[in-house]
């Protein structure tokens, strides 16, 4: 029997689910190797166990909390895909705003209809076997993970920072152009795609290490004279859920 795979979205743009469909050259091979099941339908059949469940999106409502717990029960391996599922992502920008304020700004008097909580990664609620960070996730990493899990191989994220990959791409460091980039503190694996396309790293893959954060924070203030609030604003783009102290 083919292994069963399900894809499920919480609070997200569904871009990471869509990224799977953008593996156009490999999609038919994937469909040949696995059975894709509709998670909502699968849940109505009691004995249906899902081998790998992929979840994009943050947990940001009471309904999300219920759903991720149910998903966990039905999946042998649970994989968080994308910045929202791994770190809360862009949804967590609201975490540092006044709750009444951000709700009424969008929904006015209707805000009472929208029970929300702080945007959080799914690992804050359930155990997660693997995380594929990035906004969106890197689809080649998705492919490598699926292959590894189906063949019983080990799989792990790189442990270096984006700077390492950026150097390999031969890019001129953006700091040389006076642009503050989060490459030094951000986990590698994206091939430094943003600096390669002329834009600063926005840190969508999360922190490479606490040491990298501490060092960069001191450097930015002492060497580049960047105020702490600007550093925080940049770090919060996708990572506002994380609780870290800066020196």
């Amino acid at each position: 029997m083919k292994p069963k795979i399900a894809v499920f979205s919480l609070t997200s743009c569904e871009g990471c689910s869509l990224a799977i469909l953008e593996l156009e050259n490999q999609l038919l091979d994937i469909l040949g190797a696995v059975e894709i099941v509709n998670f909502r339908e699968a849940m109505t059949e009691r004995d249906c166990d899902i081998d790998i469940g992929f979840v994009d999106g943050a947990v940001s409502t009471p309904t999300d909390v219920e759903e991720i717990k149910e998903m966990r029960e039905h999946c042998k391996a649970l994989v968080a895909i994308g910045a929202c599922a791994c770190q809360g992502g862009i949804n967590s920008l609201k975490n540092h705003q006044n709750e009444d304020d951000y709700r009424s700004y969008v929904y006015g008097d209707g805000a009472k209809h929208f029970p929300t909580i702080k945007a959080q990664p799914i690992s804050a609620f359930v155990e997660v076997e693997y995380e594929l960070p990035g906004c969106p996730m890197v689809k080649e990493e998705f492919l490598a993970l699926v292959k590894a899990v189906l063949s019983g191989q080990q799989w792990a994220l790189p442990q270096t920072s984006v700077c390492v990959e950026c150097k390999k791409q031969g890019n001129l460091c953006l700091y040389e152009k006076g642009i503050i980039c989060l490459g030094p503190v951000t986990l590698a694996g994206c091939g430094a795609i943003c600096p390669t396309f002329g834009s600063k790293c926005e840190g969508c893959r999360g922190l490479a290490s606490d040491e990298a954060l501490q060092a960069a924070s001191i450097n930015l203030r002492e060497q580049y004279d960047i105020p702490l609030e600007n550093i925080l604003a940049d770090l919060r783009f996708y990572g506002a859920y994380q609780e870290k102290s800066l020196p």
Partner: peptide, 15 residues
């Protein structure tokens, strides 16, 4: 039945 997102709120205070 989708979760609310609050993008207009996210934008306030960003560059």
């Amino acid at each position: 039945v989708e979760s609310p997102r609050f993008f207009e709120s996210f934008l306030r205070g960003r560059h």
